[in-house]
Structures are given as C-alpha cells and as structure tokens.
C-alpha cells in the first residue's frame, strides 16, 4: 500500500507533499467557543472535559449515529460525554483534550453524520464543523458489522481531502454475528490505517491512540 501511494505521488509531481496542508485547506479557522459543553443548552455534555491548548492538532470523531463515537471520545479524553445505545444522543459538538504518545490533541465528538448531503440538523452541524474548522485528522467510526453501508462516508471524507483513520468499532458484535473482517486487507485496499475496537470495553483504544499519534493518512492530497 505504501508503494502504491508513493507511485501516485511521483505521478502527480508538483502536487503538495502528503503532510502539507494544501492551498484550499489553509483557511481553517479555530472556532473555540460556540460549542455547547452541556449546561448552556440544558443537555448533559461532557462532564470533566479539559480543553486542549490552542495550536493542538484537532482530531474529529465522525460517523453515522450510534456507532460509538461518544464512547471513544470518553476513552480518548478521559472525560464523560453521554453515551447511549440509541441514535441521536449527541446533537452538539463536544470537545476535550486527549494525550497520545505524549502529544496533547484536541478531540472533537460530532453529531451523527451519514453523508456530505445533509438531511437533518445534526448532520448540518457536523458538516459545518468539517468545512469551517478543517480538523487535522478524522477518525471515521463505523460499526464493523455494517461496513458496506458505512464505507461510502469514508470515501467522501477521503474525497474531501481529510487524513482519515477508519475505526471498526463493535468488533465483538461483529464476531457474535459470525462475521470476520480482515483489518490488514481493508487497510491495504483503502490505503489508510484501520483499527479494530470495542469502545464499550476499551479494547483497541491503545492501538487507536498510536495511529492518531502517527497522524493517519490522507489519500487524496496527492491524488486530486
């Protein structure tokens, strides 16, 4: 998978380096306030979330409703955002501070998002965040057992030029259903890191932190 990426890099000579932010991405502005921490709108937001210092890399958890984004947020930040086993619990953006291999990053939990063509208000909130803030890294959280229905969003995130890590969550459920996912093969096919997790128990979170520290991979900055 490295080779394939590298060869494409060579083909597209003159394009920006993979890690440099391309021209169209440079407008990213830091919107510190505005996000509801909970009390202002009367909903339980994250309890005990510390805010990351300015300039920290921004890592956003994105995915359909009810795939475990908030549970992962809690693991990454050590805070508590409401987690429930039904869709639509997170309707506001929640932010917190996480530490991966000694580096402090800002972790952003977003409302459920199916596609870049939003239908509901919660999806619009997430799209606005992606467009206006340009997070430095996207963790696309999917339910492993429903991979085929959730990959289209991975494609759209890559298409939009974000560095993406694909998080296959609820692996335990997937196994219980008699399905197995070849994580390495998936990573090779997509050309981005793929991590298998069980957010309910914290399994796979350490590996996810390592991948976050390494920055994920953007496919398209070289391919556009």
């Amino acid at each position: 998978m490295r080779n394939r990426n590298d060869s494409r890099l060579r083909e597209e000579a003159g394009r920006p380096r993979p890690w440099a932010r391309p021209r169209w991405a440079r407008r990213g502005r830091r919107a510190g306030g505005g996000a509801c921490g909970g009390t202002s709108c009367g909903c339980p937001g994250a309890v005990g979330a510390r805010q990351a210092p300015a300039g920290a890399r921004r890592v956003a958890l994105v995915g359909s409703p009810n795939v475990g984004k908030s549970a992962l947020f809690n693991h990454l930040t050590g805070a508590y955002a409401t987690v429930s086993n039904y869709p639509g619990t997170t309707v506001e953006v929640t932010r917190g501070e996480g530490v991966v291999e000694g580096e402090t990053v800002e972790v952003i939990d977003t409302p459920g998002f199916y596609s870049f063509l939003p239908v509901t208000e919660e999806e619009r909130v997430t799209r606005r965040l992606l467009v206006e803030e340009r997070p430095d890294l996207i963790l696309h959280v999917v339910e492993a057992a429903a991979l085929d229905r959730m990959l289209p969003l991975t494609f759209q995130l890559l298409e939009a030029g974000f560095p993406v890590i694909l998080v296959l969550n609820m692996m335990d459920e997937c196994e219980r259903l008699g399905l197995s996912v070849d994580v390495d093969a998936l990573s090779a096919r997509l050309g981005i890191p793929v991590v298998a997790t069980v957010a309910a128990t914290g399994q796979g979170v350490d590996q996810l932190k390592q991948e976050v520290a390494h920055g994920g991979r953007s496919l398209l900055e070289s391919a556009i």
Binding site: L147, D148, R149, M150, L151, P152, F155, Q156, G178, L179, S180, V181, D182, V183, A185, L186, R189, L190
Partner: peptide, 15 residues
Amino acid sequence: RYRWSQRVAAAVVQE
C-alpha cells in the same frame, strides 16, 4: 460509492 463499498466489503468481510 455503494458499488465501491460493496466491492471492498466483499473482499475483506467473511461470514
């Protein structure tokens, strides 16, 4: 997109 997705999933998911 769904076709791509199906193709990738078919290659990596085993029942």
